[in-house]
Amino acid sequence: MSLLEIEDLSVEFTSRRGVLRALDNVSLTLEAGEFLGMVGESGAGKSMTGNAILGLIDPPGKIVSGDIRLQGESIVKNPERIRGSHISMIFQDPLSSLNPLKTIGAQLIETIELHTPRRGTAARERAAELMTQIGVDADRLSAYPHQFSGGMRQRVVIALAMASEPEIIIADEPTTALDVSVQAQVLDLLREVCSAHGTSVILITHDMGVIGHWTDRVGVMYAGRLIEIGTTNDIIRSPRHPYTQGLIASTPTMDANVDTTLYQIPGNMPPLTAIPDGCAFNPRCPIAEDKCREVIPHLINDVACHLRSET
């Protein structure tokens, strides 16, 4: 049994233009202590997957089918039970993730008292300990968020996510809003803190560089579907799905010749209102056949492609 199992999860939004399928039969598993990357373009369903796990999908969106299990127990019906305590989440923009009117200490202590038996002084000591772990002076518990830099704030956000000692942290583009030089520090910190506690991480990003450095396994999403999953090494060295191949080929590397033009996947990801029949990627796919335009490929041998599924 894996720590987290997502099985055939579908999320739909009912709008005036009909029913939009934001997640379409997504299945994946997360092991204890594992760093799982989720990669894909904006709107591919990465964040939606994270929000679905925590039960944070805003109406009119809702989970229409499938199951999410934490340690074997379904959490779809009552996500409040695990939200923040067993699974916490970090958002993209650390500048706005913290309540501007409350001190860092107040926000930390509030979370600690909510999810652990520590109260009063014990909670305050734990908050100071967490601050030290993230490399921020414990004296700064009485500081307000606006007195911190972006990178510092994201460290505090990590401390807040760790405050409940969760099994899983979902990090939704945790460094996109930060300076490149700070990104690596924050991700290193996340890796370090989580490894120390055996916490699993789902790292949502669109940056293949981040995937390559900080994840063990990676799932690739496209138009609400999981189209390939595998170890980071396999995905980067030998991607099988034509979309993943395009994604890897279009990632700039340091040793590439400056004169070579970067590869681009032709076209754009379809909006949820206009997902083509069959494989969602078929209009942009260099190897698409008739079957790809008619039948939706399922994830077989960790890849959802009619032509690449056999080994």
Binding site: R83, S96, L114
Partner: peptide, 13 residues
């Protein structure tokens, strides 16, 4: 605002 989303994600009542 994001800090409300984050507060919800932290499980605050």
């Amino acid at each position: 605002q994001d800090y409300i989303r984050f507060a919800r994600a932290r499980g605050l009542p």
